[in-house]
Amino acid sequence: MKRLRVIKEDSCIGCKICALYASLSKSDKVDLDSSFVKIVRDGKKFKILLDQGTKTDYPVVVNSCPRGCFDLEEIVDTNES
């Protein structure tokens, strides 16, 4: 089982392409409200907020980031053991 992980938040340029693709991965719509990625400005930098309460392991979101801010991490599903 995998989930989206932020690995290089400092590299974020605030383009929000990840947020667009996150919403588009789940539906045939661009909708920033329902996106599981939110980008907010934090002074001169950006913060990447992830909603892990939903499925996030979409490679298209990882690949959409022009600065490589994400990867997919393996997680152990404790319900299986």
């Binding site: 590299s11 340029i13 605030g14 383009c15 929000k16 392409i17 667009l20 950006f46 298209v60 022009p66 600065r67």
Partner: peptide, 30 residues
């Protein structure tokens, strides 16, 4: 996605260099 990828592949046609400045929404160049 196909059209978006096609447009992204033309990034070299832009008169600006890829950088790490805050970007406009939807633009991968910064």
């Amino acid at each position: 996605w196909e059209v978006v990828q096609l447009l992204n592949s033309r990034i070299k046609e832009l008169g600006v260099k890829i950088s790490n400045s805050p970007s406009c929404l939807g633009c991968p160049v910064g």
